[in-house]
Amino acid sequence: MKYSLLTTLTLTTACLLSGCVTSTVDEMIYNEPVEGIGESSVVILGRRHSSNYETEPDFVLCVGEHITSYDNSITVIGELEFINALYPWFEPRTAPLHPEGLEQLVLQEPVARKIADLKLEYIIWLDGSTERSGGSGSMACSLGGCFGFGTWAHDANYEATIWDFSDRAAVGHISTSASGQSYMPAVIVPIPIIAPVQGTACDGVGDQLLEFLSSEY
């Protein structure tokens, strides 16, 4: 009884201090490498085709760092480094939308050489964004400080698609959604309690990709 009360109290405090986030992750993997990706490298790219949102570069960076922080034997090529090295073939106008497009791409000799130099084995496309939805409360600030309460929600929805460069085929899909409520009570000083929605989505996708790419997970 005492233990469960303590657990509830700890969880409530943790939840209040960081904001609450709920998340789900779904995965569908067809052809996982048996012993990890070895010496090969992987690039994680954000999709930038939609007219009203773009996959955030810092989310792409976060997923890459999540993978390398748990298994530093995996080489993750930086997004900007890759699209600059292969300019103009991975710009929003020219980036292949289907894995079959890779076949046409490697017909370009300089492209084939560069990809061989990079030892690229997998391209992982991340598509989605984190949006702020709703908000309520009010706050008034004067010289004496701020008083009031504000709350708002964030929703993150991302899908990762794994392309096998050697087979020119999609070998897995991972989707994650996370939502959380952030709060800002103010008694003289406003105290923001931010729900780490994007970070939770990053961890969710990163964990699944790590399982796919690493021989140790």
Partner: peptide
């Protein structure tokens, strides 16, 4: 900058 990169990509292809 994105529009300029896109112009380059469009021209090159």
């Amino acid at each position: 900058v994105m529009a300029l990169r896109d112009a380059g990509a469009n021209f090159a292809t």
